[in-house]
Simulated assay, not measured.
Amino acid sequence: MAPSRPEESEEWLADKIDSWVETYKKSMLTPVILSIIGRHQPAGITTIAEAVARSTGWHVTERGLYRTIKRLQDSGLIASAAVDAPRTGAKRKDLSLTPLGQRYLEGITSNLVDPAL
Rank of each mutant, 00 (worst) to 15 (best):
A81H: 15
A81N: 13
T23Y: 08
L97H: 00
T23V: 10
S75H: 11
I37D: 00
L105S: 01
T98G: 10
R103H: 12
A14G: 10
S110G: 14
G44C: 02
D114I: 08
A79L: 04
P86Y: 05
E22N: 11
E62F: 15
K91H: 07
L72H: 00
A43S: 07
Q41G: 00
S75C: 06
Y104F: 15
S55Y: 09
S55A: 09
R103G: 06
H59K: 15
E7Q: 11
I69H: 05
R39I: 07
L105R: 01
L95Y: 09
G38C: 06
S4T: 15
T56E: 02
L65T: 02
T47W: 04
I45E: 12
L100T: 14
A43Q: 02
D74Q: 07
E22F: 06
R92T: 05
W12I: 13
K26E: 14
D74V: 09
K70M: 10
T47N: 01
T56L: 02
W20R: 13
Q73P: 04
M28E: 04
G76S: 01
A85P: 01
G38E: 08
I69V: 06
S55D: 15
A51G: 04
S27Y: 13
Y66L: 12
R67N: 14
G76Q: 02
K26M: 10
P86E: 04
A14V: 08
D74E: 14
A116R: 15
D84G: 09
K93R: 15
L34N: 01
L95V: 02
E10C: 06
K70P: 03
K91L: 05
L97Q: 00
P42A: 02
I37T: 01
E22S: 14
E50P: 03
P99H: 13
N111W: 09
E22L: 13
Q73V: 13
A2W: 12
P42C: 01
Q73E: 14
Y104I: 05
L13N: 11
E106P: 00
D15K: 12
L95W: 08
I37A: 01
A49E: 09
M28I: 08
T23P: 02
A85Y: 10
S19A: 12
E50L: 12
K16M: 08
P42N: 01
A82Y: 14
L100W: 10
L100Y: 08
A116D: 10
L105G: 03
W12Y: 15
A43F: 01
I45M: 11
D74H: 08
T68S: 07
D18V: 06
P3E: 10
R54E: 12
M1Q: 14
E8P: 06
T61N: 05
I45L: 07
S9E: 13
L95C: 04
A49I: 05
S9C: 09
Q41M: 05
A14Q: 14
T23W: 12
L100I: 07
R92D: 01
S96F: 12
T98C: 09
T98S: 14
G76V: 02
L13F: 14
S96G: 03
A85G: 04
S110M: 13
H40Y: 12
T61R: 11
S96K: 14
